[in-house]
């Protein structure tokens, strides 16, 4: 029973992280219909910026004092701001000129950007090739225990921050003028622009939002697993991004709520698979779930099958 509850809790915690990243994939896809494979690198950059900021602030000294309580918030906001800018820049410089190009080109550009970020991140002047010790910016204590299940502050913060961000996004997309513009653009770009929507601006904002969410996820990720911050070219980052992309697809890519559902599902699948089946086959569970879901529901769980126009 304890094991079941603990697994459930861990699954939800990891799942909400995945959901945050999956949102970035799904939002870009919803509007531009392409898979932004550079997203995993934005996420990586977010994690590293959190480290760089804490190192600069003197919170990352090995064996040093416990960092102040506000340190987590500072690092989170710094990495969100930086990645927001990065996302804006990437869209402006690399994707916008390709607005009319075939989608595959945009995809290749995304791969190019991903390679670029990874390899430039490896430079000595930036993050380097060494893994770094991520300081524990959030207090790592158990808040309360129910039925022998430890609810740790870190995990609860992860879930809370993820929920808040997703709530804000829900409100933004479904309750504001901007959100309506975003949805209009995702239905039909030419018509939306005829309606007086500044399409370029909406797309820019979408990228910025997606990237800030990824940065937040990057930060939360290194808080949840505070040991080694893997070096920029490590396959961990790409694999993680891939899993979250799978989450977005399972939920129905382009669908904001679907991404959240997919993220949590993948998190649960992984944790339950690891706890009750064998722990080293996680990737197989994730991809098998994907194939099964797509065979049953080709457009994902919440995705609508699009009617083809002739």
């Amino acid at each position: 029973m304890t094991k079941l509850l603990q697994t459930l809790f861990d699954g939800v915690a990891v799942g909400s992280l995945y959901a945050l990243i999956a949102l970035g994939y799904t939002m870009v896809y919803g509007i531009l219909q392409f898979s932004n494979f550079a997203h995993s690198d934005i996420f990586m950059t977010g994690a590293w910026i959190a480290y760089v900021v804490s190192a600069a602030a003197g919170w990352a000294v090995i064996g040093g004092d416990t960092p102040p309580l506000y340190s987590g918030l500072v690092a989170l906001l710094a990495s969100m701001a930086f990645c927001g800018l990065l996302g804006f820049g990437i869209e402006r410089l690399a994707y916008r000129p390709l607005r009319k190009a075939p989608r595959l080109n945009v995809l290749i550009t995304a791969i190019g950007i991903s390679l670029f970020l990874e390899n430039i991140g490896q430079r000595k002047e930036l993050f380097g090739t060494q893994p770094q010790k991520m300081p524990q910016l959030l207090p790592d204590t158990t808040l309360f225990t129910v039925a022998d299940v430890n609810f740790r502050i870190v995990d609860l913060t992860v879930i809370a921050v993820a929920l808040v961000l997703m709530g804000v996004l829900q409100w933004l997309v479904f309750r504001t003028r901007l959100g309506r513009a975003m949805r209009a653009v995702s239905y039909n770009i030419p018509v939306a622009s005829l309606m007086g929507i500044n399409v370029d601006r909406v797309i820019s904002i979408t990228f910025v939002i997606g990237s800030t969410l990824a940065a937040a996820a990057g930060f939360l990720y290194v808080m949840k697993y505070p040991g080694a911050l893997k070096q920029p070219a490590d396959s961990t980052w790409i694999l993680l991004g891939l899993k979250c992309f799978v989450a977005a697809v399972i939920g129905g890519i382009g669908n904001v709520r679907g991404a959240m559902l997919g993220g949590v599902l993948i998190g649960l699948m992984e944790m339950f698979g690891a706890a009750y089946l064998s722990p080293h086959m996680r990737d197989i569970y994730v991809f098998s779930l994907l194939i099964i879901v797509l065979l049953v529901r080709p457009a994902g769980l919440l995705g609508k099958a699009t009617v083809e126009k002739v």
């Binding site: 891939l242 992309f245 197989i284 991809f287």
Partner: peptide
């Protein structure tokens, strides 16, 4: 699966196939 899947969904299935094969 391409009986039922289109575009990027097909892509991600092919990717999943490759990854499962790699782990195996």
């Amino acid at each position: 699966p391409s009986l039922r899947l289109r575009g990027d969904y097909l892509a991600i299935v092919t990717l999943g196939f490759g990854e499962i094969l790699r782990v195996l």
